[in-house]
Design a protein around this nucleic acid. Structure first.
Length: 608
RNA sequence: GGGCGCGUAGCUCAGUUGGACAGAGCGUCGGACUUCUAAUCCGACGGCCGCGGGUUCGAAUCCCGUCGCGCUCGCCA
């Protein structure tokens, strides 16, 4: 197909990521051939209806175009399909071998070269599935939880989805940065700072739930909030004055006030960061909103907003009328005391993103949806290209009793506890299986630790990332920590099995470098190779739609197909040429599974 | 009340721009380990795709209505 190698890399065999193109090239060939046939029949080519047929249909792609053209032609769809199929020429294509029909459907079949090339490149390329560079730089902002205390499960979708979206965009050929936006100038942090400075250890009602800094400090935050609710009016008002003083100090760029707040922010954030690293969700940059106050960009932005036709000055505050954008309520961007609001700073933050990146993706909870819409509108008013900004919105995670999770109230399941529990259950499983273990690879204590961690954390991540973000999740331990089919361990097990076979084959001196895929004739083998071939197209579609859960679904399908293959097709005990081809297939499966897992953020164990 | 999202098997969820009989897993029942790792495989049972209309050759998918659940509508974030 001759797509240029835009990243200039020189990877062995898979030059220019050709490996990524088998299915996609075939799809293009089908579209080209079908278009040509329709044109020569004087039929419209605007909707080719190319799709993947159901599993029991032997074709790799199909078209339903005959349905739509039946009226135009004045014949029944099966007749139209037959005529079209007759007109299609498969001359000169690498992967398009034959065309036939099944009722009203036109079916397209692949050449041996399709399987050949898929097997060759997927088996040899540990980066199989990675797409060529788009040349785009993308910032993925996710999590961005206020540094008020330990991360709880209610917000765990954000780092899990966010990290997967970042991985996915990276794998789809983008240059990705991961950002955590830190709200260090808001009221919450002012309350926290005041509480931290006001109360002493002996004022607190409880011991830290865990030996890490944010579990210690959150008690001050909770104490402060309780005090503000329960203290008598005069005391509460005095506290409010101190809190306001902190906010105004930050707004004025007072360095001493800033230092007081950051002492709290940096400590709490440091602890949260350790927790998130367990997932792992790590960041290239923690971007503090105070940065956009101190550099003057928030002030400049507010001044520019004032100049727009949407700006009004009502009730002593500067506001934006967003009726044209479908928002009834005005968006206040400067308070009556002339201080900025969260959204004002976030606007400056986003213009900074636009200055530095080609695209900006934000992962946020549905409770921020309205704010995100207003943000987009305001950015548009300021003349930004808001198409560069995309959001991934996720719904809440509830506890079984319908209870909500709140840091302020101290309710909810902490992410640390969830991960500990999961790793602990995984360890029980590992130890339980140790006795009946067939494989004699002598797992030591370190292996058991490793497997328990990979499986336990993988199970939690997969449970979250495999579901559509828009759906509400009710969190249930047994559901999340089920280690059987349709879970991370099920898929991880496939990877471990592949690695096991590859190891054994190496010991036996079996070579898979120059294989003949035509000996792979069973349904199980062909299913597996077809599934592997789809992987790059899955990555492409998932990245286009910012839907990492599609990769999670694919990984599960691939694992299922592999397990059937595994049962039916021995590698080491087969005839030499069959064994070699199957070994190549195992290597290809291993690479595809490993990379699918990498995208969703689940570790791929080499043994378990 | 207005806006947005969700409603698919008993439970948890897939289902590509509308397309070939709506698919998995868990659970239930029944089979398969002297075998490259059984965290596996094979089979059975299980559906007015919330409900009612509409568009279409064709609707889980698009449109309208309706019911239920969630989020949201601050000079909070």
């Amino acid at each position: 197909m001759g797509r240029p190698c835009s990243d200039g890399s020189e990877r062995p065999l898979a030059a220019c990521r050709e490996s990524a193109y088998m299915f996609r090239q075939f799809r293009e060939e089908v579209e080209t051939a079908l278009s040509a046939a329709l044109s020569s029949l004087d039929l419209p080519t605007d909707d080719l209806g190319v799709e993947e047929p159901p599993e029991d249909v032997p074709a790799t792609l199909a078209s339903s175009v005959a349905f739509r053209l039946a009226g135009v032609v004045g014949a029944a769809p099966p007749k139209v399909a037959a005529d079209i199929a007759e007109e299609i020429s498969v001359e000169g294509y690498d992967y398009l071998a034959a065309v036939d029909t099944q009722g009203p459907y036109v079916n397209f079949h692949v050449t041996d070269a399709y399987y050949d090339d898929t097997l060759d490149s997927a088996a040899a390329d540990t980066e199989f599935g990675r797409l060529p560079s788009t040349g785009d730089s993308v910032v993925v902002e996710h999590t961005s939880a206020n540094p008020t205390g330990p991360v709880h499960v209610g917000r765990t979708r954000n780092p899990v989805i966010g990290d997967a979206v970042a991985n996915l965009l990276d794998f789809a050929g983008n240059d990705v940065d991961r950002h955590y936006y830190v709200n260090d100038a808001g009221r919450q942090m002012a309350v926290f700072t005041w509480a931290y400075e006001t109360f002493d250890e002996e004022d607190l009602d409880s011991e830290p739930a865990r030996d890490r800094i944010e579990y210690d400090l959150v008690r001050y935050y909770q104490k402060g909030n309780t005090y503000l609710e329960e203290a008598d009016a005069a005391d509460a008002e005095a506290a409010e004055e101190e809190i306001t003083a902190i906010l105004q100090g930050i707004e004025a760029g007072d360095e001493e006030t800033y230092a007081r707040v950051e002492e709290v922010v940096d400590q709490v954030l440091g602890g949260m960061r350790e927790c998130l690293a367990r997932l792992p969700a790590e960041f290239d940059e923690f971007v503090k909103e105070t940065r956009f106050m101190f550099d003057g960009s928030t002030r400049d932005l507010a001044d520019r907003l004032k100049e727009t036709e949407y700006a009004v000055y009502e009730e002593d505050a500067w506001q934006l009328e967003l009726d044209d954008y479908g928002f009834e309520k005005n968006l206040v961007f400067l308070r009556s005391d002339d201080t900025s609001l969260y959204t004002t700073r976030d606007l400056a933050h986003h213009e900074w993103k636009f200055d530095n990146y080609d695209r900006a993706v934000t992962v946020l909870g549905e409770d921020h949806k309205l704010q995100a819409g207003q943000l987009r509108a305001a950015l548009d008013i300021l003349g930004n290209d808001v198409d560069k900004l995309e959001n991934v919105i996720y719904s809440w995670v509830n506890l079984p009793g319908g209870e909500t999770m709140s840091t302020r109230k101290g309710t909810g399941v902490m992410l640390d506890d969830l991960l500990d529990e999961s790793v602990s259950r995984a360890r029980d499983e590992v130890e339980k299986r140790l006795e009946g273990r067939v494989r004699d690879d002598d797992l030591d204590e370190d292996d058991i630790d490793r497997i328990a961690r990979q499986v336990g954390i993988g199970a939690v991540r997969y449970d979250i990332v495999s579901k559509q973000p828009t759906k509400t999740i009710t969190f249930e331990w047994d559901q999340a920590l089920n280690f059987e089919a349709q879970s991370a361990p099920y898929i991880q097990y496939v990877h471990a099995r592949c690695c096991g076979i590859v190891d054994e084959a190496a010991n036996a001196g079996l070579d898979a470098t120059d294989v003949d895929p035509s000996v792979l004739t069973t349904e199980a083998e062909r299913d597996l190779i077809r599934t592997i071939a789809r992987f790059p197209a899955v990555v492409e579609a998932a990245a286009d739609d910012l839907e990492p859960h599609a990769v999670a679904t694919y990984a599960r399908e691939l694992a299922e197909v592999f397990n059937t293959f595994y049962r039916e097709c021995p590698v080491l005990d087969a005839d030499e040429d069959v064994g070699a081809a199957r070994l190549a297939l195992v290597k290809a499966a291993r690479n595809a599974v490993a990379n699918a897992l990498a995208i969703v953020g689940v570790e791929a164990p080499e043994s378990m």
